[in-house]
Amino acid sequence: MRVVIAQCQVDYAGRLTAHLPMAKRLILVKSDGSVSIHNDDRAYKPLNWMSPPCTLSVREPGADEAATTADVDPWVTEVWEVTAATGDKLQISLGEVFHDSSHDLGIDPGLRKDGVEAHLQALLAENPDTFGKGFTLVQREYQTAIGPVDLLLRDPHGAYVAVEVKRRGEIDGVEQLTRYLELMNRNPLMGEVKGVFAAQQIKPQARVLATDRGIDCVTVDYDALRGLDNSEDRLF
């Protein structure tokens, strides 16, 4: 990972356009090629980013760039151009650089789920019909280039279904599954991969975002899966 702290201006052009005026920011370049720009708040969420696959090239600033852009000082030292496979472009104009270092983080062991979430994933793997009649398990922890998908299933028609399992379903989990689906749907051997967001409780905002992105939501009854909640014993 490369960590850069510098004065920078950021311009994004693609499905939408965005502009960040010159300011001091953190830039992360990861080994997968992704580039993200952060300020000193917003927790983990970047101000702008480019997801892989993408390419990064560095060039000297043109004489007309500093002259025609009001908020770029003439002391711009270099310009980074990040181009995605879709043609979207992220241009980062660097001014003064305060820190620039690279670090090999090695292989990450991955997120260790808490006991309930890990057990929930195992129970769903044993009961794929929770998602519908005819669903079958292909693999647990299906590895992608950006992390493991909790469950990979096939629906009754043979189509692949990627399932993200959470104890508490929030927007972050939907974003995570979206990234997996974007990558998996580029694999011509898999065809169209559908997504399912499964959790014991799903927040309304997460459900709205999932629906907007064509991801199904399934609320899971943990006790019922464990066999502790027998519907025949209920009064109501």
Rank of each mutant, 00 (worst) to 15 (best):
L28N: 08
R59A: 09
G62P: 08
K133C: 06
N39A: 09
A13E: 12
P52W: 11
R59G: 11
M50V: 11
R140G: 09
L189A: 14
G110S: 05
A63M: 10
P128G: 05
P52F: 11
L137C: 06
G227A: 05
D216K: 05
P61G: 08
P109K: 05
E170K: 13
R167T: 13
L235R: 14
T68Y: 10
Y222W: 13
F135K: 03
M1Q: 15
R207S: 09
D108I: 03
L209G: 01
N39V: 04
T136F: 14
I146E: 10
V161Y: 00
Q201C: 07
G195F: 01
K133E: 08
G173S: 07
Q205Y: 12
M50L: 14
P188N: 02
D11Y: 05
D73Y: 11
G95P: 05
A23H: 04
R207V: 10
A198P: 02
E60Y: 14
V76H: 12
V82G: 00
V208W: 09
L26C: 04
L153P: 02
D104F: 15
S93P: 04
G14W: 01
G95M: 08
V82I: 10
V138M: 08
F197D: 02
L177I: 01
S231T: 06
P156N: 11
G62C: 13
D73T: 15
K113T: 00
L183G: 09
M50C: 12
V193S: 04
T144R: 04
I27H: 02
T69F: 11
I107L: 03
V174A: 03
W75N: 15
D73P: 13
D71A: 10
N39E: 10
E164N: 03
T211H: 07
R234F: 07
A162F: 06
W49S: 12
K89D: 00
F131T: 05
D233E: 12
S101V: 15
G191A: 08
G14H: 04
E60V: 10
Y12S: 00
V29Q: 15
P156L: 10
D114N: 10
L189K: 14
C217W: 01
R15D: 14
G134K: 06
K89M: 03
I37L: 10
A162N: 03
A43E: 14
R179E: 15
G115V: 05
G158Y: 07
H99F: 13
K89L: 02
D172P: 03
W75E: 15
G110N: 01
A63S: 12
R25S: 02
G147W: 00
N185A: 14
G14S: 03
L177M: 01
W80P: 01
A43V: 13
D40Y: 11
G173H: 08
L225R: 11
